[in-house]
């Protein structure tokens, strides 16, 4: 059971209070109808799935119910940071050595 810091409650609480919500910074395109099938498929399905620091979303579902973002090392499961929705990713370097920004490409497309 992980311990997770909710950036809204500013408390570190057990995973049982939280629901994982997938990769972070995969923004819904402003005008989906303008996208090609490939671009839309990338938004829907392509995920970075890094072995290293992963930007991901959690919801404090049995607490304040807010969605927030986290950086977590998928090799150790250790959290590097948590931050509020809408805030930029702190940009921690991946443990695997690849720049963290790589994981965010999908969102921008």
């Amino acid at each position: 059971m992980l311990l997770i810091h909710c950036p809204y409650c500013d408390e570190t609480l057990p995973e049982a209070e939280f629901a994982y919500a997938g990769e972070a910074h995969v923004d819904r395109p402003a005008d989906p109808m303008a996208l090609s099938d490939d671009e839309w498929a990338a938004f829907l399905f392509i995920r970075s799935n890094p072995k290293g620091v992963h930007a991901e979303r959690w919801r404090h579902v049995h607490g304040c119910a807010r969605f927030f973002n986290a950086e977590r090392d998928t090799v150790t499961d250790a959290f590097v940071s948590t931050y509020r929705a809408g805030e930029p990713r702190p940009g921690t370097k991946c443990s695997a050595g690849a720049p963290a920004g790589d994981d965010m490409k999908v969102a921008a497309e």
Binding site: A19, A21, D27, R28, R57, R59, V61, A65, R66, F67, A85, G86
Partner: peptide, 13 residues
């Protein structure tokens, strides 16, 4: 409810 909250909080704040 979770799906609605997700959109409100993260896509259309």
């Amino acid at each position: 409810l979770n799906m609605m909250e997700d959109y409100i909080q993260t896509e259309w704040p």
